[in-house]
Design a protein around this nucleic acid. Sequence first.
DNA 1: TTGTACGCGTTATCAC
DNA 2: GTGATAACGCGTACAA
Lengths: 345, 345
Amino acid sequence: MDDEQPTLADVARAAGVSVATASRALTGSRPVSGDRVRRVQEASRALGYHPNAVASALRLQRTETVGLVLPRYTTGFLSALIESVSEGLEQHRISLVLRYSEADAQHDVDNVGSLIARRVDGIIICPPSLEASRESIAAAGAVPVVQVGRFVETDRTDSVGLDEDRATDLLVAHLAERGVRSILVVGLDQEVAADSRRIRALALAASAAGLELAVAPFTAAVLEGGIRAGEWLVAEGGVGEVPEGGRGGRPVDAIVCANDDVAAGVLAVLRMHGVAVPARVQIASLLDLAPGAEDHSVTTLRHPWPAMGREAVRLLLDARQPGHDRIARRVTLAPQLVPGASTLP
Amino acid sequence: MDDEQPTLADVARAAGVSVATASRALTGSRPVSGDRVRRVQEASRALGYHPNAVASALRLQRTETVGLVLPRYTTGFLSALIESVSEGLEQHRISLVLRYSEADAQHDVDNVGSLIARRVDGIIICPPSLEASRESIAAAGAVPVVQVGRFVETDRTDSVGLDEDRATDLLVAHLAERGVRSILVVGLDQEVAADSRRIRALALAASAAGLELAVAPFTAAVLEGGIRAGEWLVAEGGVGEVPEGGRGGRPVDAIVCANDDVAAGVLAVLRMHGVAVPARVQIASLLDLAPGAEDHSVTTLRHPWPAMGREAVRLLLDARQPGHDRIARRVTLAPQLVPGASTLP
DNA sequence: TTGTACGCGTTATCAC
DNA sequence: GTGATAACGCGTACAA
């Protein structure tokens, strides 16, 4: 109720001991006689004392604080990550400072700069863009950084991401089980390193399962891109004509999309043109964008966000240890296959 | 790259001035000759200096930090609030410390205690439960608190919430326009003060529009409650039989549910029993639980979360002003009606 | 076991 | 305009 928070000196005075003893009694950093411990604790409670974490941080050169930097997604598909990170940190009595980033590089550097100024003990960052984030990660200097979700190559930061190989294997196996013979990939860009890796992994998994695989011309990995891809498919992609082997085109019977948005676009256009899904063509997505939703119309791969958050916290706290050798570690976690109505049951 | 962050003393030494001058040059708190300003800024940049916000906070007795306490919802329907609060604070260069609360009262008090220990300048809290939160709000002591979303009566905190009267008016008007004559309310508990207020507001709006209104026996305001309510409706609620005025029961042609979950349960059960929605009965919800989703099957009222976040920040920053009189202010914002397929177009 | 005194990095006060 | 210095609240090395 008082306007000023009581200080350790107030507690010590009330308990009739020195500030040193009061400090030791409350933190348990050194032995104090049982009698005085009790007196200090009573005084502390009576005064409503809350240790000043600011002063403590200044003295200890440690804030017990971690920064989390996320891209701003109105769909909120990262809230599961926030919650799991928050929970993991809370178990270690560490506070979470949250910042949102824009694609704008300068904003990202400012974000990290602000966290550095606050002397956070570590930073967990989901890089908003590959080029912008390299700079901001470098700006972190000596502060431990863990990247989560997306991933910028550096030699100094740990990272936790999806096990991409496992993801493609899972999806291809699912499709093969449902009788698929030939897959068309939509929304991945051969020119982008990460995408091209995914394509290669898909091709590998497909050939191992005896399936054919082709890649559609690139369209942006958003809803509009899916719609454009759907229209291309109907016009030229060997999906429009009902009988198999119509022209020289490949008789595609499955479409794998970069993410849920693309898949939604493709699905809508195909249905508009009377293409039966999943009877004639099955559709699946490589990336779940709405982990909250329970009813999935499209079969998709879900990021294990809670586990990723826990893992990021673990890496970060481990990197705080004095004897840490600072060799970049990369943890990958398996995605979860979420079956939807767009593939056969 | 160095392991230690440079301090103001380092900058001052490099620039050949005193720490006092360096401080003044960087903060602009007092005039410094142009020449020295330039030298200090150069030294600062050359050393990669970031002012230590911890030391500054200790000295100024102000952390430029605000705590946000939210209930843990895996649906993530509060992410819009987090984003808007974060954005509002960022404009004032204030950092956001995020904590999740449980229904457990002790946990909630601990949350606030941790924020007090960190000496946050203010707290924005969405009370997880009415009884638990009164205590934690009291624990905030002299720190300004703004409640958002839900609302615990206190005489000392500002709050921002939904304009409930406007909400009920909006929904009743929508239904009246669609030819509704008689409304049944589901999922609201007469025994709970807030719910009973809502029921009264609905009754008022209904009678003003010439509609009848009745309240179904209370079932929990979650999906299961909606299912139970749906079954009750089919069996006894005057919805199952097709012709109007079958028994003495009221010929209900609209159901207003406490929230989307309840509505989803009711909708599913009615459809299972062949009741045509919205042709025979229209369904609407008083509370949108998934502001992210674009396709709403149920007509609902959406909280203006972004505006609520902005308003909460505004109230909090205003309460930090020295001359603030600490009289509790309550801001209410109008919800947005989101039409779905469960009412006539 | 206990107390005294210093320093963490910054800003405000005071004297020049 | 500028510089020396005290103080913010705490933890701990040192002395007792």
